[in-house]
Each structure stands twice: as C-alpha cells, then as structure tokens.
Write a protein that binds this DNA or RNA. Structure first.
Lengths: 240, 240
DNA sequence: CCTACCGATCGGTAGG
DNA sequence: CCTACCGATCGGTAGG
C-alpha cells in the first residue's frame, strides 16, 4: 500500500536526472557551436529523442541556456567556498581556487561551463547570471586583497588581476585537447603556477617547463627536483 | 580625354573601401551576437542598405566571416613584425607585442578582431585561418625562447606561456568598457605589466595598482614614482 | 542598389 | 515521448 507513496519521489528523481543530462548536453553543444548555431533538434538527437520531448523538461530554448549558466555558477561558487575554507594566505586561497576551477573545466563534464553569449538570454535571466558571476569574481578579488594585506601578493589592482587570471583560465577551453600530450590536472598545475608567479610577492625562479612532468600523486619537493634534474627526451607524461 | 582612364581606379578604390567598411561592421556584429546570431539583414541595415546589396561585395555570409578572420590576422602579423624589428631582449619583444596587440584590440576598430567561431567556416577557410594563427602564436613563442636563451625570461614552457598571455589579452574584449574609468592604453599598459611579471627572470616588486595613473606621455620613471607617492582619492584618470 | 521572392530551417505547439 | 504541423526568419537569387 506504500507503493504509491514511494513512486512519487522516484519519478521525480528520474525527471531531475534527465533534466540534468539535458542541461549538460546542451551546454556542451552551446560551447561548441554557439547558442544560435545549435538547434534543439541536434540536442534531442544526441539524447536519442525528438525535439518535442525536450519541452517536457524545459519551457524554452532560452530557459535552457539560462539553466546552463546557472549550473555553471553553482559549481563556481562551490569552488570558491572550498578554497576559502582551506585557509592560508590570500595567495594560497587564490591559487587553490584557480587550480580546482581549471581542473573542473578541463575535466569530464567541464564543457558544461558556459561562459559566452549571455546576451542571448532575456534581460531578467541575464541580470541574474551576471549578478552571480559578479559575486564569484568578487570572492576571487577578496583573495587578492587578503593577499596584499598579508604580504603574500604584490600590491596590484585586484580587479585587473582577476580579469587576467580568469581570462587565462577560460581561454584554456579553446586550445585544450583531451587527447593531447598533457592531462587536465597537469595543465591545471602548470598554468596556475605561472599565474601565481605574476601575483606572488616572492615569485619563484623555478618554473615547471614541461607540464607532462607533473604527477598528481607527487609531492612538491619531488616535483621541483624533477624540474632541474636531467630527464629523458619525452619526460614523464600522462601518469595514471 | 584622360577622364576615362582615371575613373577606373577611382571606382575600384570606392569598391575596396566599401568592402572594408562592410567587413568591419560584420566583425563587430559577429563579435557581439555571434555568427549565427547575426543576420545579413541586420548588418545591411547598419550600413543603410538592403541585404541584397551586400552580395555585390561578398559572395556569401561564410566568406564574409572568412574575410573578417583574415583581416584580423593581417593586423596580428604586423604587430609581431614591428615588435621583432624593435629589437632588445626576448622579454622586451614579447612585452612590446602584447601591449600593442592589446592597444589595437581596445582601440576604435579593435572590435573587428574576430577570435571565435572558426567552426562556422568551411574546412578550407578554417584551415587557412588556423595556419595563419599558428604562425602568429609561433612568433610569440619564439620571443619566449629568445628570452629564456638571453636570460630575460624564466625557464618555462613557451606554448603554455603564450596560451596564458593570449587568453588574458583576448578576454579583455569581454569586460572592457570604452566609457569606463580606464582608457584602452591604460589597461594595455597595466595588464601587460602583470603578464610580463609572470615570465620575467627578474620580476618587479612594484606594480601599477591603479591603471588610471598611467599617462601615455609619461616616462617610466615619473610613472613609477607616482605608484609609491601618495595621491588624491581618484588619482589621475583618462589623460588626453 | 532595390523589390520581391525561393527553399530550408528554426523554435514551439496540438493532439494523441 | 512521437508525428505532424504552425508562423517566422534565415541565406541567397532573379530581374530590373
């Protein structure tokens, strides 16, 4: 007799799950071909259904784009909060945030982080997204001002600094190839290191000149020793 | 009797000029609303003609996008060549290239530098553009390897370094507001300074914390003195 | 350089 | 979740 009671949340979970898959698939397509360059028919075909079926989960194409942006902001906020709770100097918090942001973006479902074409949304949706993004950027800027105050970051303009780092990070989606020589975590480490150097009050004179040398399981000392050590021509690449 | 002879080049010049205006207008629209989000009717309206008139100057919308990309690459190549001929260390050449690239991009007709949606072009056009862009990036990378060799740049991965700086630069189009607090040259100076710091073998411990302080006519010493000096709340902004 | 039109494709809906 | 369809808009062309 309890069957009816259980059936409701199960069905609802199914619905939510499908909706989430739709959003990720849409975001990937919007990223690849642009909002106007992607038809709902294409998205539906990838999901094995017809266009009409999509309207069970979203009321319009525009709203689908809005959901994509909103999901991306959920992730961004999580990353900033985790970086904040990790503690340490301003520079450490910033570096941590940048690295996990990049790892996420270059990871499996990273393509769903939509960044462009906010103008395609209707004004109310656009304002909501821009507001959330401003909060994200403000959190990153606070790491910079923290760092300037605690001496870990060189005095600079926080606004410009954050524009610089987010630009460098977001651009990675344009050139990153999952089947290339470098893995996501390797690029995340090496790129973050370069950006950290531009802001650190005590910039390292040792940089990772081959991202392929980085191993997620390696500790900092071993890695830095590898940088100066002689090594084989192709170095160590794509560690499991 | 010479009238006829002169009329031909004049007409041809008129044609070329109009074509150029069309390309810039199209590039600005493509940048704003995307390739698929921009109709030829919109572009035509901005130029005060009808859509059909555009076909006198370009054979198709796709070809118009190709011309946009190609013009942008012309400018990029010019900038790199000028930076090369200026001489100096690898770091100096790189910094010079980045700064003029940014000044151009934030300048009056800068919006015509199209960067995205290469996939909208047919394969042959896409290949041609990607080839030219690779040459541009290779030139920038050579500045980095020059710099590592002459000791002005810290040992690093040139490919990653150029991806980082181009990302930071290209992203500026997303946030730059011509009517904002900072002028194009001011941002170009301050942002380039930050990027230079990430690669320099002797990173400055003095950064321009307010881009508004920068005056194109100011020499380096006066500027750096202004950075440490006390100043009025709003600093000096938007010098003529 | 314009008016008038074409075939194709789009987002969205009706009805089941 | 599908078939079948709608009005609107697109890129491109004919003919002048």
């Amino acid at each position: 007799m309890a069957t009816w009671k259980n059936a409701v949340p199960e069905a609802s979970a199914q619905f939510d799950r499908k909706r989430e898959v739709l959003i990720r698939e849409a975001a990937a397509s919007f990223n690849r071909r642009g909002y106007y360059g992607t038809s709902l028919t294409e998205i539906a075909k990838k999901l094995g259904v017809t266009k009409a079926a999509l309207y069970t989960y979203v009321p319009s194409k525009e709203e689908l784009l809005y959901y994509c942006h909103d999901s991306a902001m959920d992730t961004a906020v999580e990353i900033v909060e985790a970086a904040q709770q990790g503690g340490g100097t301003g520079l450490q918090k910033l570096t941590r945030a940048l690295r996990s942001y990049l790892e996420m973006m270059l990871g499996e479902d990273g393509s769903y982080v939509v960044l462009l074409e906010e103008h395609a949304m209707k004004p109310a949706h656009m304002k909501a997204i821009i507001k959330r993004r401003d909060q994200f950027e403000a959190a990153l800027r606070s790491f910079v001002t923290d760092g300037i105050a605690d001496g870990s970051i060189v005095p600079c303009n926080p606004k410009l600094a954050i524009f610089m780092v987010t630009g460098a990070l977001n651009w990675s989606r344009k050139w990153y190839r999952p089947d290339g020589n470098w893995s996501g975590p390797q690029i995340a480490y090496a790129l973050t290191q370069m950006l950290e150097r531009s802001l650190s009050s005590s910039p390292s004179d040792q940089m990772l000149d081959d991202p392929g040398l980085f191993d997620p399981d390696m500790d900092e000392e071993t890695l830095m020793a590898a940088v100066v050590e002689p090594r084989t021509a192709e170095g160590r690449r794509r560690p499991a």
